[in-house]
């Protein structure tokens, strides 16, 4: 068994449930395409391409979280902060599709499962937290970085529980669901912290260089602060 695989492989969840989630994933992405058009303008479109490429790159960087266990960024929260929930989900899905078709990572049969967990659940959870946190945190690089960190940790843990749900519905082995849920949640809390650090660094850097390219700063602005999201006087809220 190769250790390069990063996503759900074929055979772990049975055919009917995989097919069900393939349909769900297709419907979900359809909604995203429909809603994404409102966000996709001449500035966001190339940025979204970059976000997808960046997530692909960082997903290759497995970091050690426990002896013999590694993890890698999933990218949902990062994408949400930079390009918004609808386009963000499509960015993550693009990465998963390229990985599946070109690099044989994440089973073809399991593609719907992987898209549901990482592109839909991870991004949706990340978005809800970003929308909540951006109401309280300052619209500064530090504020948006902290938002990305928290949204990443919770987004990753929830995405991992998506797998538990799928395994509960269509698992092909007789194993204790509680144990699997616990192990997945525990390991993915650690992975989420790693992802959070990467995502926070990334979005804080973009917010410093080009705040106008950060969706979360544009979308959740409060009128006076928005004019100069990058200045130190952000605390004036």
């Amino acid at each position: 068994m190769d250790t390069q695989a990063m996503h759900i492989a074929n055979g772990i969840v049975d055919g009917p449930v995989s097919a069900l989630f393939a349909v769900l994933a297709a419907l979900g992405l359809g909604v995203c395409v429909w809603r994404a058009r409102a966000d996709l303008d001449d500035r966001l479109a190339p940025m979204a391409g970059l976000v997808a490429a960046f997530i692909f790159a960082v997903q290759m960087l497995n970091f050690q979280v426990l002896p013999g266990v590694s993890g890698h960024l999933l990218g949902g929260a990062l994408a949400v902060v930079l390009v918004g929930p609808w386009v963000g989900a499509l960015c993550v899905a693009t990465v998963l599709i390229v990985q599946c078709l070109l690099f044989a990572d994440g089973g073809l049969t399991a593609l719907g499962l992987n898209i549901t967990n990482m592109a839909l659940i991870g991004t949706a959870a990340g978005y809800l937290l970003v929308a909540l946190l951006m109401r309280f945190l300052p619209k500064t690089p530090a504020g948006v970085g902290a938002t990305a960190f928290i949204a990443s940790v919770l987004g990753v843990v929830l995405a991992s529980q998506g797998f538990v749900l799928e395994y509960w519905l269509g698992g092909t082995t007789e194993l204790s669901l509680g144990t699997i849920a616990g192990t997945m949640a525990g390991v993915h809390t650690l992975i989420g912290i790693g992802e959070g650090l990467i995502a926070a660094t990334t979005v804080a850097t973009v917010a410093r260089v080009r705040p106008d390219l950060v969706y979360a700063l544009r979308r959740f602005r409060t009128a006076p602060v928005a004019a100069q999201p990058v200045t130190v006087s952000g605390g004036a809220a």
């Binding site: 250790t3 695989a5 990063m6 996503h7 759900i8 970059l50 490429a53 960046f54 692909f56 790159a57 960082v58 290759m60 960087l61 497995n62 970091f63 050690q64 979280v65 426990l66 013999g68 266990v69 590694s70 993890g71 890698h72 991992s160 797998f163 699997i180 192990t183 997945m184 390991v187 993915h188 650690l190 992975i191």
Partner: peptide
Amino acid sequence: VALLLAGVVSSFASGSPDGLDAT
């Protein structure tokens, strides 16, 4: 940055199974 991460840094990534694989 993405090209450097994927082209160079990736070779130094951990080879251990990831969280899902380990589970």
